[in-house]
Design a protein around this nucleic acid. Structure first.
Lengths: 189, 189, 189, 189
DNA sequence: CATGAATGAGCGTTCATTCAT
DNA sequence: AATGAATGAACGCTCATTCAT
């Protein structure tokens, strides 16, 4: 569905190398890295980048989407555990904490995501992964509210809001302090 | 020490025009505006920009610092009102709210400040204005805590943390929601 | 000699599809269309284009030559009608008018032909179709001259000259005006 | 009027060198020459080209316009001679002949002009020089018609039409033949 | 002091062509 | 014979910065 044709083996390998290299380069040098540099780090020529991704924005979006896939999967696993009896609020705060960890370890990728802001839905892979996460989180949030652990007016959009404002580029102490401050306001009154 | 020579009248006028124009241009077009464009908006030539500011970063830092001066003054005024009997917590949340308003109306400048991140202390004007604000805020925070309105572990650094993560570039509804979530966690337990 | 091997059935089919697609793409997007796009429109891969035509120039030349085949056939039909009693001058001006029509409807192909200018004889197919047209036109011109309708010094080269300067890319009114101006000078004195 | 400020001496010199080099390079390699190559031939860096001309199209248009200035002046001189008693038809055909000569010696520039086709009025310098030529030619055409030398329905637009279709890139013999054919149709009936 | 012309490395992107599969 | 991934030089253009005037 995502791939009309299954992509030749060598092309798939190159695509993976490009994504990996792009992730590394963005992490190391920020979303401003040049395509040329990503190409060099991938061990391919620029043209190959453009063969796989129509333009730089699309490549960056693919990197961001890939990074978010793990998050979506984490959300789904958390929901499943909650469905199987684990306290929903525990699962939810656990998910949030891990989400912030991911953000902290990928803060340049997060910055890239922010640069995409306006059209973050214009990228298919992004839309898909967001939908997955939203689906799981909606249910996890609801469960946590029903168990009286999470404030009643909390929504999935709030997760995005908190995530998007998490100080991923600051030192661990600051990140933890921020979480502490914010978490205080999340519990049910 | 900060000013080896008191600056000739016309030079001072030029400097002011540059700062004003730079603020406007950054606000309108983001921190990426070219020096050429700022120069044009200032009514001077690029060379003059470089006469006043060794490089673009320094100019942007000066603009950011200037924008923060109003904030420092607001902090001082709030403190003064608290000293004269106004409830410290009211003054503090009032200050915070106005701070977020300023951020929202200058979010491109705030973005510029963020781009400076690493060395935001490397710029003298920045250090100075931060010191003024910190001085006033420290006392305001302490007062609010003594009056049992603000959580006991709150510090001035937390103000920076909250300010730096405020979603200034998002629509009003999101900004207000963020404030609501965060403020919940600030009151004394 | 022109065809060392008679070309396998599927290869012949592919070649035809490529030529058709190339004609369409050139007509629609000009001679600058990329080989990739022509390949896509042909339903084959680029490699196949290069299998049939050593390089882009050769493909474009083949398209141009093919387009000229209809012209050569028109010339031959006109000559035949003249041989069978139709006034030669009528046939000749009729041919010229249709030639200009063809040019107008294929002006991007004509532009492609012009880009080839220098070596328009370097391409076998081109030489062949030109020879066919020249053969018929020489006799048609002679007949028209003998019947005193066409100026005595007119030659087949003049046909090329007029054709190559016909303003095919201009609006109909301009094309008609050009024809009117030029035709005035063609009748026998 | 064309120049709000009279341009510094060194800048004017560079501008002239750029125009000269651009003319030469276009003449030698066609309108497709790269800006880099024109810059090298000018003895300046690319940035300087862009300082003087916002983009390649504008530079090419300036070269074309400059080349046409001589034509406009020729038209004006021809008109003046006609006003002073020289037969208008002689002046007109003389002008046309010289125009074709210029085109022949600058055929790559003429090709460049053709590439500009759609927006050849979008370039101020072009508009101005066209207006000058049109003014003089309108009167010269009228005079030639009143003296019964030029066909009565001839217009200035016809001059453009003939000029734009003149086979400037063909050998002298072809060019002369074309002129001969076309001129036959211009005399008054 | 101010000017603004000049620099030139760098960027994103395109595309004819090659060659391993 | 066909595929299509990969190449990489080339292009138009930008912009922080320098320095002769």
């Amino acid at each position: 569905m995502t791939s009309p044709r299954p992509l030749r083996a060598d092309a798939a390998r190159n695509r993976a190398r490009i994504m990996t290299a792009a992730h590394e380069q963005i992490t190391e040098h920020g979303p401003g890295v040049s395509m040329e540099q990503i190409a060099a780090a991938s061990g391919v020529a620029v043209g190959t980048l453009y063969k796989h991704f129509p333009n730089k924005t699309d490549l960056v979006a693919a990197v961001v989407a890939a990074a978010f896939t793990a998050v979506a999967e984490d959300a789904e696993a958390s929901l499943q555990r909650a469905d199987q009896g684990s306290p929903a609020i525990t699962e939810f705060t656990g998910f949030l904490t891990r989400l912030m960890d991911v953000a902290a370890h990928n803060h340049a990728v997060k910055a890239a995501a922010r640069d995409l802001h306006a059209d973050h839905d214009a990228h298919p892979a992004m839309r898909e992964v967001e939908a997955r996460a939203a689906e799981a989180l909606t249910r996890l949030v609801r469960a946590a509210q029903e168990q009286r652990g999470l404030r009643a007016d909390f929504t999935v959009d709030d997760v995005y809001l908190l995530f998007s404002t998490f100080p991923a580029d600051q030192p661990p102490a600051a990140r933890e302090r921020w979480l502490a401050l914010v978490f205080t306001g999340l519990t049910a009154s």
